[in-house]
Design a protein around this nucleic acid. Structure first.
Lengths: 110, 110
DNA sequence: TCCATATTTCCAGTATATTCGAAATATGAG
DNA sequence: CTCATATTTCGAATATACTGGAAATATGGA
């Protein structure tokens, strides 16, 4: 992952509303959620949410697909993994010892 | 880690210059680097870098300590680990299968 | 076709971020 | 004490981001 791509992804997530939307989509799994359902759950105006989903999509963190009158958004797990990998790669360049606790974090969560 | 804290950290890293500074500090290890040395390596004006280091420090990602005429900055590995943990925790809430490849990423790097 | 629903696009106002020059502060050397 | 070095703080200009209202687009149903 390139630096510019990482910055774009980090910036997309560095916003309370977008981070919340992304988390909901991640938790929703492969089925995804319709834009309207997200707006309802996050209590955001549809147009504001749309703009924010667009930013997430632009960063490659989510994808959208029309389903009838709704547009369903799904998290892109690969993109998230790439971003985490980029940060981890960064961390280990100089200090492998930081990875032990991170390793533990990953273990604990699964 | 709270959402607001995560957003602050993500925003701090979502800037090419700051991300580069943070990476250098991470690679520099516990010794850290003086502000001037960072400015030289990153080819940034000292005052611009200072403002950016301040943003990183505010997010808790780096700490500073005076050493003679220089001010030495060091990466805060704990903060980075917390941020990664927050993102991982998020990811695993709904989809444990995403952790397998992440697990592999962490393994590969150490 | 006509209408309601779902979502996006456009636009303008406001807020926040970024940068740089200039001045201020802190330290150590002579 | 005076000076050079290292860094920060201040202030203003510019750029970018965020939000919400209004209008536009797309879809499916009556």
């Amino acid at each position: 992952m390139e630096v510019k791509s990482a910055v774009t992804s980090l910036a997309a997530l560095a916003h309370e509303g977008r981070l919340a939307a992304f988390r909901l989509l991640v938790q929703a799994g492969g089925e995804g959620l319709a834009a309207g359902e997200l707006a309802r759950r996050l209590e955001m105006l549809p147009n504001t949410l749309s703009a924010n989903l667009n930013i997430l999509a632009n960063a490659g963190l989510v994808v959208s697909q029309r389903d009838g009158r709704s547009i369903v958004y799904r998290a892109q797990y690969d993109a998230m993994r790439d971003l985490l990998g980029f940060l981890v790669e960064d961390c280990c360049g100089g200090s492998p010892e930081i990875c032990a606790p991170l390793f533990k974090t990953v273990n604990d969560c699964c």
